[in-house]
Design a protein around this nucleic acid. Structure first.
Length: 449
RNA sequence: GGGUAGGUGGCAGAGCGGCUAUGCGCGGGACUGCAGAUCCCGUUUUAUUGGGGUUCGAAUCCCCACCUACCCUCCA
Protein backbone atom coordinates (compact mmCIF):
# COMPACT_ATOMS: atom_id res chain seq x y z
CA UNK A 1 0.00 0.00 0.00
CA UNK A 2 0.96 3.63 -0.31
CA UNK A 3 1.04 5.98 2.63
CA UNK A 4 2.01 9.64 2.83
CA UNK A 5 5.24 10.27 4.68
CA UNK A 6 5.75 13.70 6.23
CA UNK A 7 9.53 13.47 6.12
CA UNK A 8 9.82 12.86 2.38
CA UNK A 9 6.54 14.64 1.52
CA UNK A 10 5.69 11.75 -0.78
CA UNK A 11 3.53 8.69 -0.93
CA UNK A 12 5.76 5.83 0.15
CA UNK A 13 5.22 2.20 -0.59
CA UNK A 14 4.63 0.05 2.46
CA UNK A 15 5.53 -3.40 1.27
CA UNK A 16 3.49 -6.19 2.70
CA UNK A 17 4.78 -9.69 2.77
CA UNK A 18 2.81 -11.98 4.95
CA UNK A 19 3.80 -12.13 8.55
CA UNK A 20 6.13 -9.16 8.41
CA UNK A 21 6.43 -7.38 11.73
CA UNK A 22 5.63 -3.70 11.91
CA UNK A 23 6.52 -1.56 14.88
CA UNK A 24 4.07 1.29 15.16
CA UNK A 25 4.13 4.09 17.69
CA UNK A 26 1.54 6.83 18.05
CA UNK A 27 1.74 9.74 20.44
CA UNK A 28 -0.85 9.30 23.13
CA UNK A 29 -2.50 11.73 25.49
CA UNK A 30 -1.18 13.99 28.19
CA UNK A 31 -3.59 13.06 30.91
CA UNK A 32 -4.55 16.40 32.43
CA UNK A 33 -8.06 16.59 31.00
CA UNK A 34 -10.71 14.60 29.16
CA UNK A 35 -10.18 13.85 25.48
CA UNK A 36 -12.05 15.87 22.85
CA UNK A 37 -13.26 14.88 19.40
CA UNK A 38 -9.98 15.86 17.77
CA UNK A 39 -8.19 13.22 19.83
CA UNK A 40 -10.84 10.76 18.76
CA UNK A 41 -10.23 11.63 15.10
CA UNK A 42 -6.54 10.83 15.34
CA UNK A 43 -6.99 7.73 17.46
CA UNK A 44 -9.75 6.29 15.33
CA UNK A 45 -7.69 6.82 12.21
CA UNK A 46 -4.67 4.99 13.59
CA UNK A 47 -6.97 2.30 14.95
CA UNK A 48 -8.25 1.63 11.45
CA UNK A 49 -4.74 1.81 10.02
CA UNK A 50 -3.51 -0.82 12.49
CA UNK A 51 -6.51 -3.04 11.84
CA UNK A 52 -6.11 -2.75 8.10
CA UNK A 53 -2.41 -3.58 8.26
CA UNK A 54 -3.19 -6.61 10.39
CA UNK A 55 -5.89 -7.67 7.96
CA UNK A 56 -3.27 -7.51 5.23
CA UNK A 57 -1.11 -9.92 7.17
CA UNK A 58 1.32 -7.61 8.92
CA UNK A 59 2.09 -8.44 12.50
CA UNK A 60 1.63 -4.97 13.94
CA UNK A 61 2.80 -4.09 17.41
CA UNK A 62 0.97 -0.87 18.19
CA UNK A 63 2.54 1.08 21.03
CA UNK A 64 1.18 4.24 22.59
CA UNK A 65 2.70 6.40 25.26
CA UNK A 66 0.85 8.19 28.02
CA UNK A 67 2.38 11.42 29.27
CA UNK A 68 1.77 11.24 32.98
CA UNK A 69 4.18 13.91 34.15
CA UNK A 70 4.04 17.38 32.68
CA UNK A 71 3.51 21.07 33.54
CA UNK A 72 -0.19 20.87 32.76
CA UNK A 73 -0.70 17.90 35.03
CA UNK A 74 1.06 19.68 37.87
CA UNK A 75 -0.93 22.87 37.44
CA UNK A 76 -4.13 20.88 37.17
CA UNK A 77 -3.29 19.12 40.42
CA UNK A 78 -2.68 22.46 42.11
CA UNK A 79 -5.94 23.89 40.77
CA UNK A 80 -7.92 20.93 42.01
CA UNK A 81 -6.00 20.70 45.26
CA UNK A 82 -4.98 17.08 44.91
CA UNK A 83 -1.90 15.04 44.05
CA UNK A 84 -0.62 14.81 40.50
CA UNK A 85 -0.99 11.05 40.73
CA UNK A 86 -4.67 11.52 41.35
CA UNK A 87 -5.04 13.71 38.30
CA UNK A 88 -3.21 11.13 36.21
CA UNK A 89 -5.47 8.34 37.46
CA UNK A 90 -8.62 10.29 36.76
CA UNK A 91 -7.80 11.36 33.26
CA UNK A 92 -5.99 8.28 32.07
CA UNK A 93 -9.04 6.24 33.13
CA UNK A 94 -11.21 8.72 31.30
CA UNK A 95 -9.08 8.37 28.16
CA UNK A 96 -9.15 4.58 28.24
CA UNK A 97 -12.88 4.57 28.88
CA UNK A 98 -13.66 6.88 25.95
CA UNK A 99 -11.36 4.95 23.62
CA UNK A 100 -13.02 1.71 24.60
CA UNK A 101 -16.46 3.15 23.94
CA UNK A 102 -15.26 4.47 20.58
CA UNK A 103 -14.03 0.96 19.82
CA UNK A 104 -10.40 1.95 19.61
CA UNK A 105 -8.99 -1.40 20.69
CA UNK A 106 -5.99 -2.10 18.49
CA UNK A 107 -3.30 -0.76 20.82
CA UNK A 108 -1.07 -3.50 22.20
CA UNK A 109 0.60 -1.61 24.97
CA UNK A 110 0.35 1.72 26.75
CA UNK A 111 3.66 2.96 28.11
CA UNK A 112 3.52 5.49 30.93
CA UNK A 113 6.39 7.96 30.96
CA UNK A 114 7.07 7.67 34.67
CA UNK A 115 7.65 3.93 34.28
CA UNK A 116 10.64 4.77 32.07
CA UNK A 117 12.52 7.29 34.22
CA UNK A 118 15.68 5.16 34.25
CA UNK A 119 15.66 4.80 30.50
CA UNK A 120 15.09 8.55 30.14
CA UNK A 121 18.02 9.36 32.42
CA UNK A 122 20.20 6.90 30.56
CA UNK A 123 19.36 8.43 27.20
CA UNK A 124 20.02 11.96 28.44
CA UNK A 125 23.38 10.85 29.82
CA UNK A 126 24.36 9.39 26.49
CA UNK A 127 23.33 12.61 24.73
CA UNK A 128 25.47 14.53 27.18
CA UNK A 129 28.48 12.28 26.51
CA UNK A 130 28.03 12.88 22.80
CA UNK A 131 28.09 16.60 23.38
CA UNK A 132 24.49 17.05 22.30
CA UNK A 133 23.22 18.07 25.72
CA UNK A 134 24.38 20.52 28.35
CA UNK A 135 23.42 21.21 31.93
CA UNK A 136 22.32 24.61 33.22
CA UNK A 137 21.13 25.71 36.62
CA UNK A 138 17.53 24.82 35.81
CA UNK A 139 17.90 21.68 33.75
CA UNK A 140 19.55 19.76 30.95
CA UNK A 141 19.02 20.97 27.40
CA UNK A 142 19.45 19.51 23.94
CA UNK A 143 21.69 21.56 21.71
CA UNK A 144 19.97 21.84 18.33
CA UNK A 145 23.05 23.34 16.68
CA UNK A 146 24.81 20.07 17.40
CA UNK A 147 22.40 18.11 15.25
CA UNK A 148 22.72 19.23 11.64
CA UNK A 149 19.48 17.59 10.51
CA UNK A 150 17.36 19.59 12.94
CA UNK A 151 14.39 20.86 10.93
CA UNK A 152 14.25 18.05 8.39
CA UNK A 153 10.83 16.80 9.42
CA UNK A 154 9.15 20.21 9.54
CA UNK A 155 11.07 21.27 6.42
CA UNK A 156 12.42 24.37 8.02
CA UNK A 157 15.94 25.54 8.65
CA UNK A 158 16.97 26.29 12.21
CA UNK A 159 17.32 29.94 11.28
CA UNK A 160 13.88 30.26 9.76
CA UNK A 161 12.40 28.51 12.76
CA UNK A 162 14.03 31.08 14.99
CA UNK A 163 13.03 34.06 12.89
CA UNK A 164 9.35 33.25 13.15
CA UNK A 165 9.56 32.09 16.70
CA UNK A 166 7.33 33.34 19.45
CA UNK A 167 9.27 31.63 22.15
CA UNK A 168 10.40 33.57 25.15
CA UNK A 169 14.07 34.05 25.80
CA UNK A 170 15.57 31.78 28.40
CA UNK A 171 18.89 33.15 29.63
CA UNK A 172 20.09 29.65 30.40
CA UNK A 173 19.81 28.29 26.91
CA UNK A 174 22.56 28.57 24.33
CA UNK A 175 20.07 28.74 21.51
CA UNK A 176 16.39 29.71 21.60
CA UNK A 177 15.36 26.39 20.03
CA UNK A 178 17.22 24.24 22.54
CA UNK A 179 14.68 22.21 24.45
CA UNK A 180 14.58 20.70 27.92
CA UNK A 181 15.54 17.07 28.39
CA UNK A 182 15.43 17.29 32.16
CA UNK A 183 13.82 19.93 34.34
CA UNK A 184 15.28 20.50 37.77
CA UNK A 185 12.90 20.36 40.68
CA UNK A 186 11.06 23.45 41.85
CA UNK A 187 9.44 23.58 45.28
CA UNK A 188 6.28 21.52 45.48
CA UNK A 189 6.86 19.64 42.24
CA UNK A 190 7.10 15.89 41.83
CA UNK A 191 10.64 14.68 41.25
CA UNK A 192 12.97 11.76 40.63
CA UNK A 193 16.66 11.49 41.46
CA UNK A 194 19.12 11.90 38.63
CA UNK A 195 22.78 12.69 37.97
CA UNK A 196 21.66 16.33 37.69
CA UNK A 197 19.83 16.32 40.97
CA UNK A 198 16.15 15.92 41.61
CA UNK A 199 13.82 16.73 38.79
CA UNK A 200 11.60 15.40 36.03
CA UNK A 201 11.88 14.60 32.32
CA UNK A 202 11.14 16.95 29.44
CA UNK A 203 8.36 16.10 27.04
CA UNK A 204 10.21 14.90 23.94
CA UNK A 205 12.63 12.55 25.68
CA UNK A 206 9.97 10.28 27.13
CA UNK A 207 8.90 9.04 23.71
CA UNK A 208 12.37 8.21 22.48
CA UNK A 209 13.24 6.52 25.76
CA UNK A 210 10.10 4.41 25.51
CA UNK A 211 10.50 3.52 21.85
CA UNK A 212 14.19 2.78 22.22
CA UNK A 213 13.62 0.40 25.09
CA UNK A 214 10.69 -1.38 23.43
CA UNK A 215 11.50 -1.12 19.71
CA UNK A 216 15.15 -0.17 19.57
CA UNK A 217 16.62 2.90 17.85
CA UNK A 218 14.80 2.29 14.59
CA UNK A 219 11.23 1.32 13.85
CA UNK A 220 8.57 1.46 11.18
CA UNK A 221 5.72 3.87 11.80
CA UNK A 222 5.40 6.93 13.97
CA UNK A 223 2.09 8.74 14.01
CA UNK A 224 0.39 11.65 15.66
CA UNK A 225 -1.49 14.87 15.08
CA UNK A 226 -0.04 17.39 12.64
CA UNK A 227 0.65 19.82 15.45
CA UNK A 228 3.24 17.43 16.81
CA UNK A 229 5.49 17.68 13.78
CA UNK A 230 7.24 20.62 15.33
CA UNK A 231 8.75 20.70 17.82
CA UNK A 232 7.84 17.32 19.27
CA UNK A 233 8.64 14.88 16.49
CA UNK A 234 11.44 17.03 15.16
CA UNK A 235 13.04 16.83 18.55
CA UNK A 236 12.49 13.11 18.84
CA UNK A 237 14.48 12.62 15.65
CA UNK A 238 17.27 14.82 17.00
CA UNK A 239 17.43 12.86 20.25
CA UNK A 240 17.23 9.37 18.85
CA UNK A 241 19.34 9.77 15.74
CA UNK A 242 21.73 11.88 17.80
CA UNK A 243 22.15 9.14 20.37
CA UNK A 244 22.23 6.11 18.09
CA UNK A 245 23.74 7.55 14.95
CA UNK A 246 21.28 5.33 13.11
CA UNK A 247 19.22 6.98 10.41
CA UNK A 248 16.31 7.00 9.87
CA UNK A 249 14.71 6.67 13.26
CA UNK A 250 11.44 5.73 11.57
CA UNK A 251 10.44 4.83 8.03
CA UNK A 252 6.98 6.35 7.88
CA UNK A 253 5.91 9.56 9.59
CA UNK A 254 2.15 9.74 9.47
CA UNK A 255 0.26 12.83 10.63
CA UNK A 256 -3.42 13.54 10.91
CA UNK A 257 -5.01 16.89 10.05
CA UNK A 258 -6.79 18.78 12.74
CA UNK A 259 -10.43 19.03 13.46
CA UNK A 260 -11.55 22.63 13.26
CA UNK A 261 -14.66 24.32 14.50
CA UNK A 262 -15.81 27.10 12.21
CA UNK A 263 -12.36 27.06 10.64
CA UNK A 264 -10.48 27.35 13.90
CA UNK A 265 -8.61 24.47 15.49
CA UNK A 266 -10.52 22.62 18.17
CA UNK A 267 -8.63 23.03 21.42
CA UNK A 268 -9.05 23.14 25.12
CA UNK A 269 -7.68 26.64 25.42
CA UNK A 270 -10.17 28.08 22.93
CA UNK A 271 -13.03 26.23 24.62
CA UNK A 272 -14.45 25.34 21.23
CA UNK A 273 -14.10 21.62 21.70
CA UNK A 274 -16.70 18.92 21.34
CA UNK A 275 -16.54 16.08 23.80
CA UNK A 276 -16.92 12.48 22.62
CA UNK A 277 -18.50 11.76 25.97
CA UNK A 278 -21.38 14.14 25.19
CA UNK A 279 -21.63 12.96 21.61
CA UNK A 280 -21.94 9.35 22.75
CA UNK A 281 -25.14 10.31 24.54
CA UNK A 282 -26.70 11.16 21.19
CA UNK A 283 -24.81 9.12 18.61
CA UNK A 284 -23.61 5.57 18.31
CA UNK A 285 -19.86 5.07 18.54
CA UNK A 286 -20.07 3.67 15.02
CA UNK A 287 -21.70 6.90 13.84
CA UNK A 288 -18.82 8.90 15.27
CA UNK A 289 -16.32 6.59 13.61
CA UNK A 290 -18.07 6.79 10.26
CA UNK A 291 -18.20 10.56 10.50
CA UNK A 292 -14.52 10.84 11.34
CA UNK A 293 -13.55 8.31 8.67
CA UNK A 294 -15.49 10.24 6.05
CA UNK A 295 -12.69 12.80 6.23
CA UNK A 296 -9.33 12.57 4.51
CA UNK A 297 -7.13 11.79 7.47
CA UNK A 298 -4.41 14.31 6.81
CA UNK A 299 -6.50 17.26 5.72
CA UNK A 300 -7.89 19.68 8.23
CA UNK A 301 -11.62 19.15 8.64
CA UNK A 302 -14.44 21.25 9.96
CA UNK A 303 -16.65 19.85 12.66
CA UNK A 304 -20.28 19.63 11.69
CA UNK A 305 -23.20 18.24 13.59
CA UNK A 306 -24.77 17.38 10.26
CA UNK A 307 -21.85 15.12 9.45
CA UNK A 308 -22.54 13.17 12.61
CA UNK A 309 -26.19 12.86 11.71
CA UNK A 310 -25.15 11.47 8.33
CA UNK A 311 -22.84 9.08 10.15
CA UNK A 312 -25.66 7.92 12.39
CA UNK A 313 -27.90 7.29 9.39
CA UNK A 314 -25.26 5.12 7.73
CA UNK A 315 -24.49 3.33 11.00
CA UNK A 316 -28.17 2.47 11.35
CA UNK A 317 -28.34 1.14 7.80
CA UNK A 318 -25.40 -1.11 8.52
CA UNK A 319 -26.99 -2.25 11.73
CA UNK A 320 -30.26 -3.00 9.97
CA UNK A 321 -28.47 -5.17 7.45
CA UNK A 322 -26.49 -6.90 10.19
CA UNK A 323 -29.62 -7.79 12.11
CA UNK A 324 -31.23 -9.15 8.98
CA UNK A 325 -28.38 -11.54 8.29
CA UNK A 326 -26.89 -12.29 11.69
CA UNK A 327 -28.70 -15.62 12.04
CA UNK A 328 -26.95 -16.95 8.93
CA UNK A 329 -23.58 -18.61 9.33
CA UNK A 330 -20.89 -16.27 7.93
CA UNK A 331 -19.85 -17.76 4.63
CA UNK A 332 -16.50 -17.26 2.94
CA UNK A 333 -16.78 -17.51 -0.80
CA UNK A 334 -15.17 -16.09 -3.91
CA UNK A 335 -18.02 -13.65 -4.04
CA UNK A 336 -17.69 -12.39 -0.46
CA UNK A 337 -13.92 -12.12 -0.80
CA UNK A 338 -14.31 -10.15 -3.98
CA UNK A 339 -16.71 -7.72 -2.31
CA UNK A 340 -14.32 -7.24 0.58
CA UNK A 341 -11.31 -6.71 -1.66
CA UNK A 342 -13.24 -4.14 -3.58
CA UNK A 343 -14.29 -2.26 -0.43
CA UNK A 344 -10.83 -2.11 1.07
CA UNK A 345 -8.99 -1.38 -2.17
CA UNK A 346 -9.05 2.43 -1.65
CA UNK A 347 -7.19 1.95 1.63
CA UNK A 348 -4.19 0.82 -0.40
CA UNK A 349 -4.02 4.37 -1.68
CA UNK A 350 -3.04 6.42 1.35
CA UNK A 351 -5.89 5.15 3.49
CA UNK A 352 -8.69 6.62 1.45
CA UNK A 353 -11.37 5.82 3.99
CA UNK A 354 -13.91 8.14 2.34
CA UNK A 355 -13.87 6.13 -0.86
CA UNK A 356 -14.08 2.89 1.11
CA UNK A 357 -17.16 4.27 2.82
CA UNK A 358 -18.71 4.99 -0.55
CA UNK A 359 -18.12 1.38 -1.56
CA UNK A 360 -19.58 0.19 1.72
CA UNK A 361 -22.59 2.29 0.95
CA UNK A 362 -22.91 0.68 -2.47
CA UNK A 363 -22.73 -2.70 -0.80
CA UNK A 364 -25.44 -1.67 1.66
CA UNK A 365 -27.70 -0.44 -1.07
CA UNK A 366 -27.26 -3.62 -3.03
CA UNK A 367 -27.75 -5.85 0.00
CA UNK A 368 -30.73 -4.02 1.43
CA UNK A 369 -32.62 -3.76 -1.83
CA UNK A 370 -33.54 -7.44 -2.10
CA UNK A 371 -35.20 -9.18 0.80
CA UNK A 372 -35.62 -12.79 -0.36
CA UNK A 373 -32.03 -13.87 -0.72
CA UNK A 374 -30.75 -17.39 -0.38
CA UNK A 375 -29.21 -18.53 2.90
CA UNK A 376 -25.87 -18.66 1.13
CA UNK A 377 -26.02 -15.03 0.05
CA UNK A 378 -27.15 -13.92 3.50
CA UNK A 379 -24.22 -15.81 4.95
CA UNK A 380 -21.88 -14.07 2.56
CA UNK A 381 -23.29 -10.69 3.51
CA UNK A 382 -22.81 -11.58 7.15
CA UNK A 383 -19.19 -12.48 6.46
CA UNK A 384 -18.57 -9.23 4.59
CA UNK A 385 -20.08 -7.27 7.48
CA UNK A 386 -17.87 -9.09 9.96
CA UNK A 387 -14.82 -8.17 7.94
CA UNK A 388 -15.93 -4.55 7.58
CA UNK A 389 -16.32 -4.46 11.34
CA UNK A 390 -12.92 -6.04 11.88
CA UNK A 391 -11.23 -3.25 9.92
CA UNK A 392 -13.43 -0.20 10.40
CA UNK A 393 -15.31 -1.01 13.60
CA UNK A 394 -18.58 0.38 12.28
CA UNK A 395 -21.05 -2.47 12.62
CA UNK A 396 -23.25 -1.74 15.60
CA UNK A 397 -24.34 -5.01 17.14
CA UNK A 398 -25.00 -4.66 20.83
CA UNK A 399 -26.47 -7.86 22.22
CA UNK A 400 -29.94 -8.29 23.67
CA UNK A 401 -30.55 -11.19 26.06
CA UNK A 402 -31.42 -14.48 24.33
CA UNK A 403 -35.08 -14.83 23.65
CA UNK A 404 -35.90 -11.18 24.33
CA UNK A 405 -36.45 -10.40 20.67
CA UNK A 406 -38.88 -13.29 20.12
CA UNK A 407 -40.77 -12.43 23.27
CA UNK A 408 -41.24 -8.81 22.28
CA UNK A 409 -42.26 -9.64 18.74
CA UNK A 410 -44.71 -12.37 19.65
CA UNK A 411 -46.42 -10.20 22.26
CA UNK A 412 -46.79 -7.33 19.82
CA UNK A 413 -47.92 -9.51 16.94
CA UNK A 414 -50.52 -11.08 19.20
CA UNK A 415 -51.98 -7.62 19.74
CA UNK A 416 -51.84 -6.78 16.05
CA UNK A 417 -53.64 -9.98 15.11
CA UNK A 418 -56.43 -9.04 17.46
CA UNK A 419 -56.58 -5.62 15.84
CA UNK A 420 -55.34 -4.01 19.03
CA UNK A 421 -53.12 -1.49 17.25
CA UNK A 422 -53.12 0.83 20.23
CA UNK A 423 -51.10 -1.67 22.23
CA UNK A 424 -48.93 -2.54 19.22
CA UNK A 425 -48.08 1.12 18.66
CA UNK A 426 -47.40 1.68 22.32
CA UNK A 427 -44.85 -1.14 22.32
CA UNK A 428 -43.23 0.28 19.22
CA UNK A 429 -43.01 3.73 20.80
CA UNK A 430 -41.51 2.44 24.03
CA UNK A 431 -38.96 0.35 22.14
CA UNK A 432 -38.02 3.39 20.11
CA UNK A 433 -37.28 5.24 23.30
CA UNK A 434 -34.90 2.42 24.21
CA UNK A 435 -33.15 2.77 20.86
CA UNK A 436 -34.71 -0.36 19.39
CA UNK A 437 -36.33 -0.07 15.98
CA UNK A 438 -39.13 -2.24 14.70
CA UNK A 439 -39.94 -2.90 11.11
CA UNK A 440 -43.15 -4.52 9.93
CA UNK A 441 -43.21 -6.01 6.49
CA UNK A 442 -45.01 -8.66 4.51
CA UNK A 443 -42.40 -11.16 5.65
CA UNK A 444 -43.08 -10.50 9.29
CA UNK A 445 -41.84 -8.16 11.96
CA UNK A 446 -38.24 -7.46 12.61
CA UNK A 447 -36.31 -5.82 15.42
CA UNK A 448 -33.02 -4.03 15.12
CA UNK A 449 -30.92 -1.70 17.22
C1' G B 1 8.52 36.39 6.99
C1' G B 2 9.20 30.80 6.45
C1' G B 3 6.91 25.74 6.19
C1' U B 4 2.61 22.28 5.07
C1' A B 5 -2.17 21.44 3.18
C1' G B 6 -6.48 23.16 0.67
C1' G B 7 -10.38 26.18 -2.40
C1' U B 8 -15.92 21.08 -6.12
C1' G B 9 -23.57 21.22 -6.56
C1' G B 10 -28.53 23.85 -1.26
C1' C B 11 -25.07 21.48 2.60
C1' A B 12 -21.20 17.71 3.70
C1' G B 13 -17.58 15.44 0.90
C1' A B 14 -14.87 12.17 -3.18
C1' G B 15 -12.52 11.82 -7.80
C1' C B 16 -6.51 13.94 -9.35
C1' G B 17 -6.01 13.92 -17.72
C1' G B 18 -11.54 11.27 -21.20
C1' C B 19 -16.40 7.16 -18.10
C1' U B 20 -18.90 13.72 -14.38
C1' A B 21 -19.14 9.61 -6.96
C1' U B 22 -21.59 9.14 -2.39
C1' G B 23 -24.47 10.88 1.76
C1' C B 24 -27.84 14.48 3.64
C1' G B 25 -31.72 17.83 2.27
C1' C B 26 -35.85 18.63 -1.09
C1' G B 27 -39.91 16.64 -4.65
C1' G B 28 -42.59 12.27 -6.50
C1' G B 29 -43.75 6.98 -6.30
C1' A B 30 -43.81 1.61 -4.25
C1' C B 31 -44.70 -1.12 0.24
C1' U B 32 -47.73 -0.70 5.16
C1' G B 33 -53.58 -1.37 9.67
C1' C B 34 -50.84 3.22 10.57
C1' A B 35 -45.89 4.82 11.24
C1' G B 36 -40.93 4.33 10.78
C1' A B 37 -37.37 1.85 8.09
C1' U B 38 -36.42 0.01 3.21
C1' C B 39 -36.65 0.33 -2.20
C1' C B 40 -37.27 3.14 -7.01
C1' C B 41 -37.25 7.90 -9.82
C1' G B 42 -36.13 13.09 -9.99
C1' U B 43 -33.28 17.45 -8.10
C1' U B 44 -27.33 16.86 -11.48
C1' U B 45 -28.22 19.86 -18.61
C1' U B 46 -20.71 23.76 -18.33
C1' A B 47 -20.74 21.95 -9.46
C1' U B 48 -15.39 22.09 -9.86
C1' U B 49 -12.14 30.32 -6.67
C1' G B 50 -10.59 33.81 -10.96
C1' G B 51 -7.37 34.47 -15.29
C1' G B 52 -3.89 32.48 -18.72
C1' G B 53 -1.34 28.00 -20.78
C1' U B 54 -0.26 22.56 -22.24
C1' U B 55 -3.55 18.84 -24.69
C1' C B 56 -7.72 16.02 -29.59
C1' G B 57 -9.66 16.42 -24.46
C1' A B 58 -8.56 19.40 -17.57
C1' A B 59 -12.00 19.65 -11.56
C1' U B 60 -7.62 16.78 -12.58
C1' C B 61 -0.98 18.94 -15.38
C1' C B 62 1.84 24.08 -15.63
C1' C B 63 1.99 29.57 -14.58
C1' C B 64 -0.14 34.01 -12.25
C1' A B 65 -3.63 36.14 -8.89
C1' C B 66 -7.03 35.95 -4.88
C1' C B 67 -8.86 33.37 -0.51
C1' U B 68 -8.70 29.67 3.78
C1' A B 69 -6.70 26.46 7.67
C1' C B 70 -2.67 24.48 10.41
C1' C B 71 2.61 24.78 12.17
C1' C B 72 7.10 28.03 13.46
C1' U B 73 4.81 28.57 22.20
C1' C B 74 1.78 23.82 25.19
C1' C B 75 -1.35 21.09 21.78
C1' A B 76 -4.03 14.85 18.61
Amino acid sequence: MKIYDTLSLTLKELEGNNGKKLKMFVCGPTVYDKPHLGHAKTNIFFDVLAKFLRFKGFRVFYLMNVTDIDDKIISRANEEGRGWNDVVNTYSSSFFEIMKRLRVDSINYYAFATDYINEIIDQISRLQHKGLAYETNDGVYFSVRGFSDYGKLSHQSIDSLISGARISINENKKDPLDFALWKKRKPGEPYWDSPWGQGRPGWHIEDTAITESIFGPQYDIHGGGADLIFPHHESEIAQMEGVSGKVPMVNYWIHTGHLNVENVKMSKSLKNFVSPEDLLKRFWPEAIRIYLLSMQYRNPANYSEKGLIDGQIIAEKISLLKHRVKKYEPSVSDNSIQIINNIISPLENDMNTQEALVLINDFLKESLSIRDKSDKINGEINYVLNTIDEIFGIVHDAPLPDGAVDLILSARNEARKKGDFGTADEIRKKLGELGIRIEDSTEGSFLWW
